[in-house]
Nucleic acid binder design. Structure first.
Length: 804
RNA sequence: GGGCGGUUAGCUCAGCUGGUAGAGCGCCUGCCUUACACGCAGGUGGCCGCAGGUUCGAGUCCUGCACCGCCCACCA
């Protein structure tokens, strides 16, 4: 064992060993009937591990390893998401770079190419999880487009259809002109954008004057079917019911009244364009207006006379036309937020198009009940409330996407237009028996399949032994932004399809921001690859650091925390060297014969309880803190220092206990820092089984009383080190420990006695002040008052020892 | 515009149901003491964002204000 712990080679070696010896497999080390199940949030097949994954992986691995040591039948389910739009984006970019398009290549060839690319280049994240030491059961890796998984997705859709919750509707959707597909509200990213706001007057058909409207998109005037004003707006009250002429197209449109119009914005009058604006679509629907379309699926104009123009060109043409006729009142710069596609950042085009929708009431109700009854609990509590609110307000789910990469919708149409929804693929139309069926070209929203992850990975809809054993699971851990997209949908689909919740606890972990507080993002260049600290400081250190900084809110990435982890690993390694070197041929055995032995066993016991409590509350930062101070302060700086002379002397009880105490320390640290603890474990005498499947330490409350005695020694040592004055100790044992810790050769004479006296006088004055306050003594809890009395007494005693 | 959270030592952050402020890093002073200089011992450093209130006592509870984040939202 070298003095400097080198994580790199050690960690890789153990990662290979653990996996090849089957210690990551579900059920490894199982000693009891209960199971503990977590499924990893399936990362995109095309993705790389980012800091959020690394934190989340650390969280899940700690819980899995802890439960495995406690004897649970653990399963940590790995796998990937096919990530419809994201993956298709990658392949489409490649095609464009090659001078072609997906349309030219064709659907079949495109899909073939995607599969080939995935096999060659995708699926890198599970390798990175391995390097982090994540003990997933890699033998069970699943993919949302696996043959069996497709069965699950199709079955889900058919069940929804049979329940009557799937319907087709022509609605205005968020249309991405680049991907040429509808995307959900949740996939739209709003960005502040600078635009021009144009005020254009629409003349009355009869009589003079007109009404001016404000618009940032003059081109959409071509599809205007009305002008709306607020019913109570005095400026326009008389205009309601009159007709206006839309410039350029010279269409006659009515002035209508609608409460959704904000009188304070612009001119207080809104042009109504149901075909190209979400609010206008609703107003149009409610007033029975026609829906006109002047923009095509590629975002270019299709209006007569404007065909093929970019919208900006069309805007200019329309404004020019109106300006020539003196209808433009003014144009001014205007900053507002514009929806963009979160994948390609194209400006979202609100377009009316036919899509498949899923009604939410029937799905949401049981999930809401489960949340309100806390059968599923989100942590922290604020996220629990958010999950409930999101479900209460969940709008119908647009499940169709005009993509190729994904699960094609299992609906077929016959020449007469009858629809058949079935799986496996039907041979004939369910209504007329026609065999000429054409399948709907759309695919399902990616989240439609992710919603099934906790049970589709276990073989559902087949009734597999895994499903019986591991469903429902226990914990799900994920990022905040995914609560509505994923968590809520897993809960309602589990309830709908299996009649039971998929897990009981949802951990919403911190978002890891860059060190300067900005978001970690590739485009900003603020991202940090988690493999960087793993290579520099080790996987153990990285896990430690990430959990140390984690909290219930966003946190800043701090290398310092990871360096602290590296120091902890090194410290542990070295104290183990000390003990291992002095205990050749000794059998570990806790023999609490001396004070320092009893004390460290009590400290280990207390730390075990604190750590268990913190893990169980998902308070990962507290747990790392407890383990850090246990190792540095208690084990190394006090216990190891106190015990050294007896260890060198060959005291058998001391040596056997030191080994036993070290073993307990290693076990407590293992879920957090598996590699360094396993490496040390392997150097201990008589060790054959891996620490992974070794039992978690049992409670042992028998030594708690030694605490006070050692605290007295600590105080005496501190006073001595500060002032050079030796405080008298009561027992032989205490004096022995004192002598071991404050070694004679290190004693220095003198010390700053005056400073120490001044400090004590100050403390005494403070305590006397408090105890002199009658109301304090009368109202404060007894232990607080007693604590102050004890402090006061001690300070006086110490002051006396220093002499005045 | 709505909702949630933050403001504590130079930096990053802990402080549970109110009891008189802590950690790590940094800085200062000693130490290469045969486990570890990725170390040991000791120390410096805070009107706990601002203003009120409740209380014997307030980072801790209440009210208002000021900044800073995040999420959500159809303001043309």
């Amino acid at each position: 064992m070298e003095p400097l712990y080198q994580p790199g080679s050690v960690e890789r070696r153990w990662q290979e060993t653990w996996e090849s010896e089957g210690l990551y497999l579900a059920g490894a080390g199982r000693r009891r009937d209960e199971s503990f199940v977590i499924c990893v949030p399936p990362p995109n097949v095309t993705g790389e591990l980012h800091m959020g994954h690394a934190l989340n992986g650390s969280i899940q691995d700690v819980l899995v390893r802890w439960h495995r040591m406690r004897g649970f039948d653990t399963l940590w389910q790995p796998g990937y998401d096919h990530a419809g739009i994201s993956t298709q984006n990658v392949i489409e970019k490649q095609l464009i770079a090659e001078g072609t398009t997906r349309q030219e290549v064709g659907r079949e060839a495109f899909l073939e190419r995607t599969w080939r690319w995935l096999d060659e280049t995708g699926r890198t994240i599970m390798g990175q999880y391995r390097r982090l030491g994540a003990s997933l059961d890699y033998s069970r890796e699943r993919f949302t487009m696996d043959e069996g998984y497709v069965e699950a997705v199709m079955t889900f859709f058919v069940r929804l259809w049979d329940a009557g919750w799937i319907y087709r509707a022509n609605r205005i959707v968020n249309w991405c002109p680049y991907h040429q597909t509808a995307i959900s509200d949740l996939e739209v990213e709003h960005v502040e954008t600078d635009d021009m706001l144009s005020f254009v007057r629409y003349p009355f058909v009869e009589g003079d004057g007109g009404i001016a409207v404000a618009t940032v998109r003059p081109a959409t005037m071509l599809a205007d079917v009305a002008v709306a004003v607020h019913p109570d707006d005095p400026r326009y009250r008389d205009a309601i019911g009159r007709e206006l002429v839309v410039p350029v197209v010279e269409r006659r449109v009515p002035v209508i009244a609608d409460e959704r119009v904000d009188p304070a914005f612009g001119t207080g009058a809104v042009k109504v364009t149901p075909g190209h604006d979400p609010m206008d679509f609703e107003i149009g629907r409610d007033h029975g207006l026609e829906t006109l379309t002047v923009i095509g699926p590629d975002g270019r104009m299709i209006a007569p006379g404007f065909e093929g123009l970019e919208q900006k060109e069309a805007d200019a043409k329309v404004v020019a036309w109106a300006e020539e006729r003196g209808l433009v009142e003014k144009r001014e710069p205007y900053r507002h937020s514009v929806g963009t596609c979160e994948r390609c950042h194209s400006r979202i085009e609100p377009l009316v198009s036919p899509q498949w929708w899923c009604r939410m009431e029937g799905l949401a109700a049981p999930a809401l009940e489960a949340l309100r009854e806390r059968r599923v609990r989100f942590h922290p509590e604020s996220q629990h409330r958010f999950a409930i609110e999101s479900l209460e307000q969940a709008p119908d789910w647009c499940v169709s996407r005009q993509l190729w990469w994904g699960h094609q919708i299992p609906i077929w149409a016959c020449p007469d237009g009858h629809l058949t929804c079935a799986w496996p693929p039907p041979a004939a139309c369910a209504e007329c028996g026609s065999g000429e069926l054409v399948r709907d070209p759309d695919v399902l929203d990616t989240w439609f399949s992710s919603a099934l992850w906790p049970f589709a990975t276990l073989g559902w809809p087949a009734e597999t032994p895994e499903l019986a054993r591991y469903y429902p699971g226990d914990v799900n851990s994920t990022a905040r932004e995914i609560i509505r997209l994923w968590e809520n949908r897993m809960i309602f689909s589990g309830l709908f399809l299996l009649g039971g919740i998929p897990f009981t606890d949802v951990i919403i972990h911190s978002t890891v921001l860059a060190a300067d507080g900005r978001r970690m993002s590739k485009s900003l260049g603020t991202g940090v690859d988690p493999m960087e600290p793993v290579e520099a400081h080790g996987a153990d250190a990285t896990r430690y650091g990430l959990l140390k900084i984690s909290s219930t809110q966003d946190v800043r990435y701090a290398v310092g925390a990871i360096e602290e982890g590296r120091k902890l690993a090194n410290k542990l390694w070295n104290v183990a060297r000390l003990i291992v070197q002095q205990t050749e041929g000794v059998t570990p055995d806790a023999r609490p014969t001396a004070l320092e032995e009893r004390w460290i066993l009590a400290r280990l016991d207390a730390a075990r309880a604190a750590v268990e409590d913190a893990w169980a509350r998902f308070d990962f930062a507290s747990a790392t803190g407890v383990l850090y101070h246990l190792t540095f302060d208690d084990f190394c700086d006090w216990y190891a220092e106190a015990v050294k002379p007896r260890l060198y002397d060959g005291d058998e009880d001391c040596r056997a206990t030191a080994l036993a105490a070290l073993e307990t320390l290693l076990a407590l640290l293992h879920p957090l820092m598996p590699h360094v603890t396993e490496e040390i474990w392997s150097h201990l005498p008589g060790r054959t089984a891996s620490l992974i499947v070794s039992p978690w330490p049992e409670p042992d409350g028998s030594h708690a009383a030694s605490h006070d005695a050692l605290e007295r020694v600590k105080e005496a040592a501190q006073v001595f080190r500060r002032s050079g004055v030796a405080v008298e100790l009561a027992s032989e044992e205490e004096r022995r420990v004192f002598a071991a810790v404050v070694r004679p050769e290190r004693r220095r004479d003198g010390g700053d006695v005056d400073a120490e006296r001044a400090r004590l006088r100050k403390e005494i004055a403070r305590a006397e002040g408090m105890l002199g306050n009658e109301r304090f003594v009368a109202n404060a809890p007894a232990d607080v008052v007693d604590g102050e009395r004890a402090k006061l007494e001690r300070y006086r005693r110490e002051l006396e020892l220093l002499g005045s």
